[in-house]
Write a protein that binds this DNA or RNA. Structure first.
Length: 242
DNA sequence: AATGAGGTCAACCGCGCGAAT
DNA sequence: TATTCGCGCGGTTGACCTCAT
């Protein structure tokens, strides 16, 4: 399933992540957060590119990740939002706690798309997604918010999906999710989503920290002055992650 | 038991966007 | 204003898995 390990042109490792690499990344991100994905692998002791580390963390190592076993409600949500937003997998995934964009995308392509195609009547002029949407919902147009900016993305599932304001809603919702790349957003997202009370997680982290040298943990903060000091240098910041 | 086809999903790639300089 | 950097997104790939023959 995973790819054959190899090296890219910069000598960075590619392919399947080993348990040891996972442990290193997990331990580092849990303790210090992801302050700079590009620099992170160097300090975490990984010969991976930052992009690869980010992907591994976001799609696999985050403690709050839910894997497999999609519920009917989750599948309905994916189908509805795919019809509404198109292939905006990150936006769709944001409405499914614990699910990643990659996983939602895979599930769509391997299961839901196929299922929808099977249900499509050849004579029908409506798209599969539209058919599902119109079949499942009758909308109270008076409930439509006057301004998309007043609508929290968390409430997108409550929005109407047909009618005159659909395009505006879709556009507004998509834009809300297209510019979330600030460091602050990443950090707050991390803190919101990570469940560090997970005992299994704590145990593995403690083990790794115990095995690591002191310089491994302190080195980044000696060499890099640009890290948010409030988060990383202050002893109290420890509480943020635990 | 062997094998080929199709399915699954972790991981890579390229692009676009926003922030910083 | 132009350029550079870092990040996130969506599309695609490819190795492993499962199942039918």
């Amino acid at each position: 399933m995973a790819r054959t390990p190899g090296r890219d042109k910069n000598g960075m490792k590619k392919g399947t992540w080993t348990p040891e690499e996972d442990r290193k990344l997990k331990a580092y991100v849990s303790k210090y957060g992801f302050w700079n994905w590009r620099q992170l692998p160097k300090y975490a002791g990984l010969s991976r590119c930052g992009k690869s580390c980010r992907l591994r963390w976001m799609n696999y190592l985050r403690p709050d990740i839910k894997r497999g076993n999609y519920t009917k409600e989750e599948e309905d949500t994916i189908v509805r939002l795919q019809g509404l937003l198109g292939n905006k997998w990150s936006a769709i995934a944001s409405q499914l706690p614990g699910r990643t964009d990659n996983e939602v995308k895979n599930h769509w392509h391997t299961n839901l798309k196929k299922r929808l195609n099977q249900n499509t009547q050849p004579s029908s002029t409506t798209s599969p997604q539209e058919a599902t949407i119109t079949e499942n919902h009758s909308w109270d147009h008076e409930a439509i918010p006057n301004n998309i900016s007043d609508t929290s993305p968390n409430n997108i599932l409550d929005l109407p999906m047909d009618g005159p304001m659909t395009a505006q809603i879709v556009e507004g919702f998509a834009s809300l999710h297209s510019s979330s790349s600030s460091r602050e957003t990443s950090l707050s997202l991390c803190m919101e989503t990570v469940d560090f009370s997970n005992t299994e997680y704590e145990a593995s982290l403690d083990t790794y920290i115990a095995e690591s040298s002191g310089s491994f943990w302190t080195e980044p903060f000696i060499t890099d002055n640009n890290i948010e000091s409030w988060l990383l240098l202050d002893e109290r910041s420890h509480d943020v992650f635990y």
